[in-house]
């Protein structure tokens, strides 16, 4: 990340550079272990969106939008929605909508519980990308809104 004029002071930028990767990693952990420990797609998606928002507040708009542009966020959100629907529709291969068609596997292991980790990933993409694009949309208007 190169220095830009925008954003906050050098202290905030240094701390952000150290922490934002850890926050993102924590979000991934929360999503992938959603079927074993507390967490899941909703919380993990919001945490990953917050990592990007943290970057945006500390470094200014351009740096964060270079990492994840608005078009990319929209693509990710659509990907999440389609993935969730297709996982649900693939259940018709075994019987009905939302049928758990993958083998359950050993309980209390990472690769278990059939479709639930896949659904968690889909929901994480949907929630994270959706909230990020909401925030970007609100932010862009707020900077250029005319004053009376």
């Amino acid at each position: 990340m190169k220095e830009t004029r925008q954003g906050m002071t050098i202290i905030v930028k240094t701390i952000t550079r150290l922490t934002v990767g850890l926050i993102f990693l924590y979000g991934i952990y929360i999503v992938l272990h959603g079927h074993l420990t507390p967490g899941g797609g909703f919380a993990g998606g919001v945490i990953m969106a917050l990592a990007f928002i943290h970057l945006m507040i500390a470094f200014g708009k351009e740096t964060a939008l270079k990492k994840l542009s608005q078009a990319k966020a929209a693509f990710l959100e659509n990907l999440g929605a389609l993935m969730f629907l297709s996982v649900a529709a693939l259940g018709f291969s075994g019987g009905y909508f939302f049928y758990n068609f993958i083998k359950k596997g050993m309980p209390f292991h990472l690769l278990s519980a059939g479709i639930i980790p896949l659904c968690n990933i889909a929901i994480c993409l949907k929630v994270g990308a959706g909230l990020f694009s909401i925030f970007v949309t609100l932010l862009i208007l707020n900077n250029t809104g005319r004053k009376k």
Binding site: G34, H35, L36, T37, P38, G39, G40, E77, A81, F84, L85, A88, F97, F98, N100, K104, G105, P107, F108, S112, A113, G114, I115, I116, C119, N120, I123, K126, V127, G130, I134
Partner: peptide, 29 residues
């Protein structure tokens, strides 16, 4: 379901339609 977290088992397996509706509402918002 094979999931140890029973809340995740309910929102994504037993009551998946709820989550589908939630996704729709979020998309609309």
């Amino acid at each position: 379901t094979g999931a140890a977290n029973l809340v995740a088992a309910i929102i994504l397996d037993f009551r998946g339609y709820d989550t589908l509706g939630e996704a729709t509402v979020l998309f609309t918002a």
